[in-house]
Design a protein around this nucleic acid. Structure first.
Length: 389
DNA sequence: CGGTAACCTGGGAT
DNA sequence: AATCCCAGGTTAC
């Protein structure tokens, strides 16, 4: 127990190497004829230099922090392709984003075919980045009513909520249930590989997200063989359910951007594999439902520590789940989901390592599972109250 | 209706 | 080495 393991602090994910196996190992087919095979690679100039035409996006780091937005669980399709650089697909467009030294974000469109498509790619990109919503405005409201949020915001500026394609978002979060990041990424990569190939950056292959029709050609068995486990039937079942919608499944999903949150959630819950948590993720990350609150174990921890302390020690049941969501909305208002996003990020091990220690709030993982036992003679009453409530 | 037990898989802890 | 546990849950009793 006291064997000094000073590994206490930050790094929890070792290696991280094999997460996606970037290059699917070029099988046979040497790309270059034997003639030039003797020439040292260093002398081979690529005939077409990779497009590196970067342009500003007019977004500062406080409005969009790439490291706090892309690798923090909203999407599993964007890859880190440089120190402060991430690459992914926006519709049919392959895009890289990076921070300049002053923090501003610049973008690069790969493989742009025509100037007109370049213009529409930029429109699509700005839409995807949700630039219509000013993060600092939204956070100002949160900070006014929550000093702890204000301090976290000072350290984690630019943690933005994306506006993803609903189908893409839905499929990703179907993969996420009771699963870990590494395997979710692997599964999402598999689905993505069914879409049109867009290019390879830093060893990562990128594809347009497959259409509903393309998805419908994949059998449950194939997905199981690809390691989806029981989520394989969620995918095929949801695809089938979407295809049965009059007017098209994609349109049906998009229509949920115009209805109330409750209606959107209820609609999503009819899809196999979509429960309250996944529905909230889809609603928040792709359907403009800014006060959707995905309640997972992390958010539950946050809520019981800072929002609903009277529930500490209780188990996360569906009813308490909606109570947590309610509490978030009561405290943070119509953009509560955006607040939840920052608070969630602050719980990630990678961020806790960076934040001042007083945010870690003692209690490592040891005592988490113990219900309030000792010290307090009335703790049992508290529990009873909760269960009756 | 609320509480519980399976459900696929792989990596890390015991 | 064998087993248990857990990972941003959902479904079926």
């Amino acid at each position: 127990m006291h064997a000094l393991k000073l590994s206490t602090a930050p790094i929890m994910k070792k290696k991280t190497m094999p997460t996606t196996t970037p290059i699917p190992s070029p099988p046979l087919t040497p790309p270059t004829p034997q003639l030039i095979s003797k020439i040292p690679k260093s002398l081979l100039k690529p005939t077409s230099t990779p497009i590196t035409k970067w342009a500003p996006l007019n977004l500062s780091k406080s409005e969009l922090s790439l490291p706090l937005t892309f690798p923090t669980g909203q999407t599993f399709r964007w890859k880190q392709t440089g120190p402060l650089q991430y690459t992914g697909a926006v519709g049919p467009h392959l895009v890289s984003l990076k921070h300049l030294t002053n923090g501003d974000v610049s973008y690069c469109l790969h493989r742009t075919s025509s100037p007109s498509s370049e213009a529409e790619a930029l429109v699509a990109l700005r839409d995807f980045l949700n630039v219509g919503i000013c993060l600092s405005d939204v956070w100002e409201v949160f900070s006014a009513s929550d000093s702890r949020f204000a301090e976290l915001a000072g350290h984690l500026g630019g943690a933005r909520v994306l506006r993803q394609d609903p189908l893409e978002c839905l499929m990703q979060f179907l993969c996420s249930s009771n699963n870990n990041i590494q395997r979710i990424t692997k599964m999402v990569n598999f689905i993505s590989s069914l879409g049109n190939y867009l290019g390879t950056i830093e060893g990562f292959e990128f594809h347009e997200f497959p259409s509903l029709e393309r998805l419908s050609t994949v059998a449950e068995q194939e997905l199981r063989e690809a390691g989806f486990g029981y989520r394989a039937k969620y995918i095929t079942g949801t695809v089938k359910a979407l295809q049965s919608k009059h007017g098209g499944g994609v349109e049906w999903l998009l229509s949920l951007r115009k209805v109330d949150l409750d209606e959107a959630i209820d609609a999503l819950l009819t899809l196999p594999g979509v429960g309250p948590k996944v529905a909230a993720c889809i609603a928040l990350f792709s359907l403009d439902q800014h006060h959707a609150i995905p309640v997972d174990t992390h958010v539950w921890q946050i809520a019981t520590r800072h929002l609903l302390p009277e529930l500490a020690g209780a188990r996360l049941t569906p009813k308490l789940c909606s109570r947590v969501a309610e509490a978030f909305v009561n405290k943070y208002g119509k953009y509560a989901g955006w607040a939840q996003t920052l608070l969630f990020i602050a719980e990630l091990p990678s961020q806790k390592a960076i934040l001042p220690s007083h945010f870690s709030n003692a209690k490592g993982k040891k005592s988490v599972k113990r219900k309030i036992v000792e010290t307090n003679t009335t703790s049992e009453n508290v529990i009873n109250d909760i269960e009756e409530g």
